[in-house]
Amino acid sequence: MAQLRQDYSQFVARNIEVVVVGPENAQAFADYFAKESLPFIGLPDPTASVLKLYGQEVNLFKLGRMPAQVLIDKAGVARYVHYGHNMSDIPKNEELLALGDEINATADPEPTRPPDLETGDERYEPPESSQAACCLEPRRDAAGADFSSALHLDALRRHRRPVSDDRRRL
């Protein structure tokens, strides 16, 4: 837990809430969290209901519970599951933080979209005036051929394409 506290701000930056579940009672949790100034959410589970639900291993020979970590994304899906086989079998913070980046990138793609793509939909809906100009004034290519109707059709086609299609294509 000291290891997690060290990089706590990095977890916060990745929108990861650290929730610690243990078999101790509420008083033991309160005392330990105060003593160590732990910023996490601590949940005493004296009846081990959640510990059993999640299958935390108890090693009778070593007289203790094996550490376990589960990283759950915003959708509630377990994206990383680690069951320790001995007391020091704990994933590195870097590993968890990298996973956090990955989860944020896949589950919440909006913030990672480049800014020029965010206005992409507007680019395909030119203002009334420019549409009118495009249709009223015949435009000619080098050979003098009128291609304004082709342009107009193209604009219409783009205009009619559902927004979701644009996103998919981008």
């Binding site: 990861i16 650290v18 935390q56 519970r65 376990a68 915003k74 509630g76 007391m87 944020n104």
Partner: peptide
């Protein structure tokens, strides 16, 4: 505190602790 409290809001690192 329920796990679903975080649904749609935050990622959760659930840590099953060995004894303090």
């Amino acid at each position: 505190v329920s796990l679903t409290d975080f649904r749609g809001v935050k990622n959760v690192l659930l840590v099953f602790n060995r004894t303090f």
